[in-house]
Amino acid sequence: MEFELIRDDLVAAGLDVTICDPRQLRFEGGRLHGPNGPIDLVYRRLVIMDCLSRPDDVTALVDAARAGAVCLVNPFASDLMGHKSIFDLLTDEDRDFGLTATERNAVRNHVPWTRVLVAEADPHDHRTVGRDEVVEHRTSLVLKPVHDYGGHGVTLGWETDPREWEELVSRAVADGHLVQRRIQAHREPWPWDAPEFPLRELYVDNDPYMFRGRMGGILARLSGSGITNVTAGGSLAPTFLVRPR
């Protein structure tokens, strides 16, 4: 639905906009072409994992972007910012990224302890954690693929059987995973869609949209599980700002 909302806004602004499948694109004569003719700008909504798993379907888009023949909004390089390894870098106190004192304090308060999972950790490498330690501290850890989205592959240790956790951790060592420390998730009672609307305890996840330091909106999600991603069973909920009269 959001694809259509964005398209309608752009059309109202006088632009010629088409929603299309990447398999409908052609790169010919130095121009990218779609179902309705030449294309100057692409707003990419394809996730990078889909592009990597189906390279033949995105050849025209990749070739046009590589040739500089099209302006690609949300370019492929932007996916580096979605790579979860950025968290183990930020929580490594031995690295100086030139952050201000306020920014470093924000990292300490809002980014959970994160380490790369390895078979056996080097005691001098503060970015890694070993398999045995992760197995031992199951109830306080989360296991995540370093590059995925939507809660795919995320495992909460405290909700996992000890034997299953050990097997998952052993397999994850070779597949590129991160380990994060458990944080206290927020829960509140919410009315449930049933007769007389009984209350049910749900996890609440509020994610602000920030634009140049100012909040422009909030993504609110509710879930019965600690994983609140919509693709993992969470639900989007509208957020209202209520002021007293």
Rank of each mutant, 00 (worst) to 15 (best):
I39H: 00
I48W: 08
D56F: 00
V62D: 02
V58M: 00
D63T: 15
V58L: 04
A77V: 12
P55W: 03
D57M: 01
L72R: 09
V42Q: 06
A65C: 07
L46H: 04
V73N: 12
A67Y: 08
A64G: 05
R54C: 07
L46I: 12
G68L: 11
D57E: 12
A77H: 15
L72A: 13
I39P: 00
A65D: 05
G68E: 12
D63L: 15
I39D: 10
R66F: 05
R66C: 08
A77I: 08
V58G: 00
P55T: 02
R54P: 05
P55G: 06
A67E: 15
R44W: 00
V47T: 02
S53I: 11
P38D: 10
L72V: 12
V47L: 08
V47S: 01
A60H: 04
D63K: 07
S53M: 11
C71H: 13
P75M: 04
A69S: 15
C71E: 15
D57G: 01
D50P: 00
V73G: 15
I48C: 10
L46Y: 07
A65N: 00
G68N: 13
D50Y: 04
V70G: 11
A64K: 03
R45G: 10
P55S: 06
A69W: 06
F76A: 14
S53K: 07
P55E: 00
R44M: 13
L52D: 07
M49T: 13
P38S: 14
D56C: 02
V47P: 02
S53V: 04
R45Y: 03
R54D: 07
I48L: 13
V47I: 07
L46F: 02
F76T: 11
S53N: 14
A64D: 05
Y43P: 01
L61T: 05
Y43K: 10
L41P: 02
I39S: 06
D63M: 08
L46E: 15
V47H: 07
M49D: 15
P38V: 12
A69K: 06
N74M: 02
A65Y: 01
D63H: 10
M49S: 13
N74T: 12
N74Y: 10
R44A: 06
L72P: 09
L61D: 02
V42D: 02
D40T: 14
C51H: 03
V70A: 14
C71K: 09
D50M: 04
I39K: 00
P55Y: 01
V70F: 06
L52V: 03
L52G: 10
A60T: 07
S53F: 02
F76H: 05
L52W: 07
A65R: 03
T59S: 11
D57I: 03
R66H: 11
L52R: 07
M49W: 00
L72S: 12
L61E: 06
P55H: 02
R54Q: 10
L61F: 01
D56G: 11
Y43H: 14
D57K: 00
